[in-house]
Each structure stands twice: as structure tokens, then as C-alpha cells.
């Protein structure tokens, strides 16, 4: 009798417990993820002034307005440019760094932890330091250029220069983190592959290209998608680089999508329009991530 009861408990345990274990995540996701998402969708159908007491239903008008909003598409373009400028060097450098960390090093933990340091530094601190590096009058980079009589660059004023500066901050912050993900994948590559390749006389670059990279391809796909999603949402770097200016420079030359959302919502107080823009942004992120996935998936099959 007792045994049967125990087995019933056991069945219940086996069936229900897993759901219980994942429940905290879904509760948190529901409160901080799903609810805001759905609520934003609801708000996006209104002319919703921040402080007004009543809001007017306007259907899809906010979305139609977005399609002809020059500023929105300017932000999309800036975001895409900064994404490419930051993601490509970041992933390449991370690969090399991981490869180096995977060699036999004295005190490997120390080097691995060092790689993570930039990432655990507060983004505000990073931006302040880089803001000083890229300063126009007293910045270190301009001082360095001055040594070679190359003249001063007004980093914030130009479109290319400002975006390069912002991309540099992102690269600095995320390269180490990505490298550790690659390192974990590299350590799972069977050692005998390398041994066999060495016997066949492959150089270490050939080993890297023919063994390491193909073996960790799924991880590369993963990091590309993750950094695309993160890159589409860059906010703190351009905001703080511009000294807190929400327009992202005098000509919006480095205003990203998130920054534009912030301007519309918290500066112009048009919450309905900002919500519509954030849904369109969500759609764009899904599209960008899917393109990357399909593109890299094809490479994988070859």
C-alpha cells in the first residue's frame, strides 16, 4: 500500500517537478518579458501622451507614420552600420584570442579571467574612459595623432568617426566574453584531430582553419545571432558618448534605434508612437537574426 502511494508520488514527482523547476524563469519572463511586450503592442494603437489622462485609439496610424519617418530609418541605418563595425572585428578578434588562450599557457585561469574583465566593467565607466580617449581637445588618440602631425579629429562630429568610436567600445567590452565562449567550444574539440594533423605536417594556421573553425561552427552561429540581437539594441554607448544627448549627435549621425525610441518616448512623450517603433524594431531584429542564421546555416552545410 505504502509502496503504491510512494510510486504515485514518484510519478507525480517525475511528471510535475520539471515544470516546477522551470517555473521561476517563466514567472520572471512573464512579468518582465511577455507582459511589457503585449502591453506595448496595445499602447502602439493609441495616441498615447505620457502624462495625459485619456488616450485616443488610432489603430495602425502609428505604424503608417513610421514607414515615412526619415529619422526612424536613419536610426535603423546607423544601427546596422555600428552593428557591422562592431560585430565583425569582435568575432574575428575573439576567435584569435580564444585560439591563443587554448594554447598551453602558464596560469591559464589568470588569462581567462582577464579576458572577461572588460565585460564586467560597468558600461558607464567604459564609455567615460573611451569618451576621454576620443575627446576632441584633450583626447589621447588626438594627442597621439598630433605626434605625427596628423591633425585632430572631431570624433563626435563626423558620421564615420563617431560610429567607429562607438564600435570600438562595443568591441572592447565584448571580445573577451565571446572569446571565452569560443574557448569552451575549442576545448571540446578532440585532441587526436590535431595530433593527426601535426603528423601530416599541417601548420598551426592550417590546423586553426581546417580543424578548429569547422569544429566550433555551431558556436560561431550562436555568437553571431546573440551579438546581432545585442547590437540592434545598443543604447548606453551612443547615449553616453554624445554626452547624454538623446539625438545622437547634432545631425543624428550616431543615433541608434534604441536611442530614437528613448527620444520619442521620454523626450517627446509620444508613448504610442514609441511603442509602435519598438515593435517594428523587434521585427527588424528577428529579420536580421534570421538572415544571419540562414546565411551561416548554408555555410555549415557546405
Amino acid at each position: 500500500m505504502a509502496r503504491r502511494r510512494r510510486s504515485r508520488y514518484h510519478r507525480l514527482d517525475v511528471k510535475a517537478s520539471p515544470y516546477l523547476y522551470v517555473l521561476p524563469f517563466f514567472l520572471l519572463f512573464g512579468v518582465f518579458g511577455a507582459f511589457p511586450l503585449i502591453y506595448t503592442a496595445w499602447v502602439s494603437f493609441f495616441d498615447w501622451d505620457f502624462l495625459a489622462e485619456t488616450h485616443q485609439w488610432i489603430g495602425l496610424d502609428n505604424y503608417w507614420r513610421l514607414f515615412s519617418d526619415y529619422t526612424f530609418w536613419n536610426a535603423v541605418l546607423n544601427t546596422a552600420q555600428i552593428l557591422v563595425l562592431s560585430m565583425v572585428p569582435q568575432l574575428l578578434l575573439a576567435l584569435l584570442l580564444a585560439y591563443a588562450l587554448n594554447q598551453r599557457l602558464r596560469s591559464p585561469r589568470f588569462w581567462q579571467m582577464s579576458a572577461l574583465l572588460p565585460n564586467i566593467t560597468s558600461v558607464v565607466a567604459v564609455t567615460i574612459i573611451f569618451g576621454q580617449l576620443f575627446g576632441r581637445d584633450y583626447g589621447m588618440i588626438n594627442w597621439f595623432l598630433g605626434l605625427f602631425e596628423l591633425g585632430k579629429i572631431d570624433w563626435q562630429a563626423g558620421q564615420a568617426s563617431s560610429q567607429i568610436a562607438i564600435a570600438t567600445m562595443i568591441v572592447w567590452r565584448w571580445t573577451g566574453y565571446t572569446a571565452l565562449i569560443y574557448l569552451a567550444a575549442m576545448q571540446a574539440v578532440p585532441k587526436d584531430l590535431y595530433a593527426a594533423a601535426s603528423l601530416d605536417g599541417a601548420t598551426s594556421f592550417q590546423q586553426f582553419r581546417m580543424i578548429t573553425v569547422p569544429a566550433i561552427r555551431p558556436t560561431i552561429v550562436f555568437t553571431v545571432i546573440i551579438s546581432t540581437i545585442a547590437g540592434m539594441q545598443v543604447l548606453a554607448e551612443p547615449l553616453l558618448f554624445g554626452g547624454g544627448s538623446i539625438s545622437g549627435g547634432s545631425d543624428r549621425q550616431f543615433q541608434t534605434l534604441s536611442l530614437y525610441l528613448y527620444e520619442v518616448g521620454f523626450n517627446r512623450w509620444e508613448f504610442g508612437y514609441a511603442s509602435a517603433a519598438s515593435w517594428l524594431m523587434f521585427a527588424l531584429i528577428v529579420i536580421a537574426a534570421s538572415i544571419n542564421y540562414l546565411f551561416l546555416g548554408r555555410i555549415r552545410r557546405h
Binding site: D154, A157, S245, S247, S250, D251, Q253, N267, R268
Partner: peptide, 18 residues
């Protein structure tokens, strides 16, 4: 807000963008 936008415009002149 309007003043901020006009001053951004003057910054563009100052930076030689426009």
C-alpha cells in the same frame, strides 16, 4: 525641446556639417 533642436542645428554649422 525646440531650443535643443535649434542648438543642434547651430552645432551642425559649427562642425561644418551643413
Amino acid at each position: 525641446e525646440i531650443a535643443t533642436r535649434i542648438i543642434n542645428g547651430l552645432s551642425r554649422v559649427e562642425q561644418g556639417r551643413d
